[in-house]
């Protein structure tokens, strides 16, 4: 396995009157090349967790092993962690700062200590991978681009560092439906081309159900549930009690079942729902 998180605990403002426990005894594993979805209410500890994985926050106790090396150790260089794990924050377009798209995307690779030439190669590759034309935009100011394009450039800035594990915190927040779909496709493409593990934090259950191999459900700093999307979304009562919804397809099947229609409730996507409804609606005729 690639990531092993053991008994991770974190407390904010320890010893102060407003001390809050942000994470309690979190343990999970992620295999190489896995696509992991993290869901949970705002304030459930998702952001704190992913910042730990990137070394931005040090845990109170517990360990994070990446390929067997504990990154919470004192002598671990931050640069080595960042080479392995890329983190794309929410609204990443707000971190663009360079004069040109090329320079902005090169920022990360250069910080890793790559030569200018190596960095340049990676920039070209990363911009293509996020679905933009290098020749058209490389020399433009990132601030002239459209919202969706800016976000792609910002994501290119992280994948140009070629992380083996790419973490994305709500990468589609605030986008229109078209840009939303484009970004999801782009993530699938990056996953395929770079052969990396992906950790996707999202409120959109439909997206998680469609893309993830494994789902982590967070609640009040604890890991409430883990499993495949089918396993997790089967627990609709538990999810509801945590203030989380179901993917629309699963939800529809659940309602149908509760009304006495015999349908499979393990359906996660619209394609699945289509097949199932096709089956039950045309059954009489065959």
């Amino acid at each position: 396995m690639q990531i092993e998180v053991k008994n991770l605990t974190h407390i904010y403002s320890e010893g102060m009157p407003y001390e809050t426990v942000a994470l309690t005894d979190i343990s999970f594993e992620i295999d190489k090349g896995e696509f992991v979805g993290i869901i949970g209410h705002t304030g459930s500890g998702k952001s704190t967790l992913i910042q730990h994985l990137n070394g931005l926050i040090k845990p109170k106790s517990g360990s994070i092993l990446i390929d067997g090396v504990d990154i919470t150790g004192k002598d671990v260089k931050m640069r080595d962690i960042r080479r392995q794990i890329g983190l794309v924050f929410q609204y990443p377009e707000y971190q663009l700062f360079e004069e040109t798209v090329h320079k902005d995307v090169a920022f990360g690779p250069l910080n890793l200590g790559l030569t200018q030439e190596e960095a340049d190669n990676r920039v070209v590759e990363a911009i293509r991978l996020v679905g933009l034309s290098y020749d058209e935009i490389a020399d433009r100011s990132p601030f002239e681009l459209s919202g969706g394009q800016k976000r792609r450039v910002a994501i290119a800035g992280v994948i140009a560092m070629k992380p083996q594990i790419l973490i994305l915190d709500e990468p589609t927040a605030g986008l229109d439906p078209k840009a939303h779909g484009d970004i999801l496709q782009m993530i699938e493409r990056i996953h395929e081309v770079q052969q990396n593990s992906i950790i996707l934090v999202s409120h959109n259950m439909g997206d998680i159900a469609k893309l993830a191999d494994k789902v982590l459900v967070m609640d009040r700093g604890k890991l409430a549930l883990t499993g495949t999307p089918a396993e997790v979304f089967r627990q609709s009562d538990l999810l509801e009690s945590l203030g989380l919804g179901l993917p629309p397809a699963t939800f529809m099947m659940r309602v149908l079942e509760s009304k006495g229609i015999q349908v499979s409730t393990d359906i996660l996507t619209i394609e699945g729902a289509e097949e199932e409804l096709y089956r039950i609606l045309t059954r009489g005729k065959n």
């Binding site: 229109d176 439906p177 078209k178 439909g206 629309p248 397809a249 529809m252 619209i270 729902a273 289509e274 409804l277 096709y278 609606l281 045309t282």
Partner: peptide, 21 residues
């Protein structure tokens, strides 16, 4: 390149396959 509500999408897909809905 806009979305439609989930149910609308489903109806659209089923109608395309000849289901009268």
């Amino acid at each position: 390149s806009l979305d439609v509500p989930f149910a609308v999408d489903l109806v659209y897909r089923l109608r395309k396959r000849g289901v009268k809905i």
